[in-house]
Simulated assay, not measured.
Amino acid sequence: MRVAVLGGHGKTGHAVCAALADRGADAVPLGRADWPDLPGALAGCAAAYVVAPNLHPDEPAYVEEALAAARDAHVERVVYHSVASPYVPAMPHHLGKARAEDLVRRSGMRWTILQPGAYLQNLDLSGPVRVPYAVTAPFGLLDLADLGAAAATVLLDDGHDGATYELATRTTTVAELAAEAGVDAERVDDPGTHPWLSAMFAYYDRHGLPVGTLPLRALLG
């Protein structure tokens, strides 16, 4: 099967493409250079995995354009890469994904939505871990390899149309991960690099981002 991966050149796209290749599928990574003729780039693909650029200023518009191109190219199935807890008013970029999910559900296509937790690989455990939120906050964290395997499953196997899956490999805290690695963990001040990230860190500080692990275990057998 030929599968397009929109956003296929980032770390998420690489993980999905690698898992598709492991399953014998023909993964087609697409990026900005393909956007001017996206229907043409999608031609011949039976399914598409849609990953928006990180902190995209208008993710619903991006997803709407991707869906329109997929319909024009007669793509049969679309899988949208959303986020765990998309409807959180305190996090603007999560709300953008919630609106994009609505577009996917009303697209008229066969669809599946994945709601991944934060990636384990986002934490550097080679030395002291410093994060701008409470190190004891609860998280459901996802390994990139598991994300790729789950994406390949819902793209290639039957039975996932109309489904929405939260994805986490394990539930833990930054403090616990650091202790396992034998390094220290501490909360530091938010660097204020982007207002959406600052809002996210403030939310994490109060609530973390819990995500269930059962859907991933069920998907991966």
Rank of each mutant, 00 (worst) to 15 (best):
G7P: 03
K11G: 10
K11W: 13
T12E: 14
R23L: 01
G24I: 00
A27Q: 12
R32I: 05
A33R: 10
W35D: 10
P36L: 07
D37Y: 02
P39G: 04
G40C: 01
G44L: 05
G44R: 09
C45A: 06
V50L: 15
V51Q: 11
A52W: 05
N54F: 13
P60N: 08
Y62V: 05
Y62L: 11
A66M: 08
R71G: 09
D72G: 04
H81T: 02
S85Y: 08
L95M: 09
L95T: 00
G96R: 05
D102P: 02
D102E: 15
W111M: 00
T112G: 10
T112K: 06
T112S: 13
I113H: 01
L114M: 14
L114N: 06
L120M: 13
Q121C: 07
L123T: 02
P128W: 06
V129E: 06
P132V: 03
Y133K: 05
A137G: 14
D143N: 08
L144V: 08
L144C: 06
A145Y: 11
A149W: 01
A151E: 03
A151P: 08
A152L: 07
L155D: 08
A163S: 10
A163K: 14
T164P: 04
Y165E: 02
L167D: 07
V174S: 04
V174A: 11
L177I: 02
A179Q: 15
A179E: 15
E180Q: 13
E180I: 12
G182E: 01
R187C: 09
H194R: 06
A199R: 11
H207Y: 13
H207K: 13
H207N: 11
G208V: 10
L209T: 02
V211Y: 05
L214W: 15
L216H: 12
R217P: 00
A218L: 15
